[in-house]
Design a protein around this nucleic acid. Structure first.
Lengths: 140, 140
DNA sequence: GAGTTAAATCGGAATCATTCTTATCATATA
DNA sequence: TATATGATAAGAATGATTCCGATTTAACTC
């Protein structure tokens, strides 16, 4: 998925094209890492003075619903990134500082049976956390 | 670890014994599932009128630091349970409704190598979510 | 190209979980 | 029992997120 495809998908689903939405998608496409709502707001405020939090949150939610962005929750914050593989299940190694990721193909659910007597399993989360080279250095 | 051991550990570490702390530990020991701060508050308010949120949060934090409780973050809420195995690494299958858990012995980190070029790994999270029999039924 | 309609946005208030602050109180100890 | 220090109450403060009413704008119709 790229920005053009994302915008087309958005239109196909009946959402309107706006400059703010296009710019948000452009940002995520360029960054390819997890960003918090406030990161997005900061980045956009240069161009759009008085941009509302509501706009950011609403659009993040729209994009996530459409599968354009994927999200996770880290340290009490929702974070979003341009989906790196909308078509197949995967996991991430995530930099706790900048949100940069590495793709993890293996899924633990495929590798061993989780004893699930008396449970109806509906989801799972597997994430590995660390610091990338750029963020590790300053931490000494 | 049981309630008595937890209280002893608390005293050994220089924390004072109070009825509220003992009751909180009693609750977690009896429930053996993930509870949110507000669950604990509700449970305690019957006995202690005017109990402060601060007391709950501070004590949850003390217990977690001492390894008496283990915690996770689910749906924007911190949840706590009496540690089911303070001595060895493990994961959980968790009921999204009531917080009941099943122990998962296998750790994905042991089962396959996570390609970590350029990353310094410091942590990971593996949780399986579902609904237990009691909570599944009402959901129809 | 102007008019219409529903969606998008703004600005700020509201909410929810959590943390902080200050004064008061209770536990453990001398 | 007196004292010191930790624990608690009460409520304010914080931070992320959501909600709401009023206004603006994109997309469609004529």
């Amino acid at each position: 998925m790229n920005v053009e495809e994302a915008i087309q998908l958005m239109k196909d689903k009946g959402f309107k094209h706006t400059d703010k939405r296009a710019d948000m998608l452009q940002l995520f496409s360029a960054e390819k890492r997890y960003l918090a709502a406030k990161d997005v707001l900061e980045h956009m405020q240069g161009k759009y003075n008085g941009l509302s939090f509501d706009t950011i949150y609403r659009n993040l939610s729209v994009f996530t619903d459409l599968g354009i962005l994927e999200s996770t929750e880290l340290d009490g914050e929702k974070k979003f990134r341009f989906t790196c593989a909308a078509d197949h299940h995967h996991h991430h190694l995530i930099c706790l500082d900048c949100g940069k990721t590495k793709h993890i193909e293996e899924c633990p659910m495929d590798l061993f049976p989780v004893k699930k007597e008396g449970f109806h399993i509906v989801d799972h989360k597997f994430e590995v956390y660390g610091y990338c080279e750029q963020c590790e250095a300053p931490r000494g």
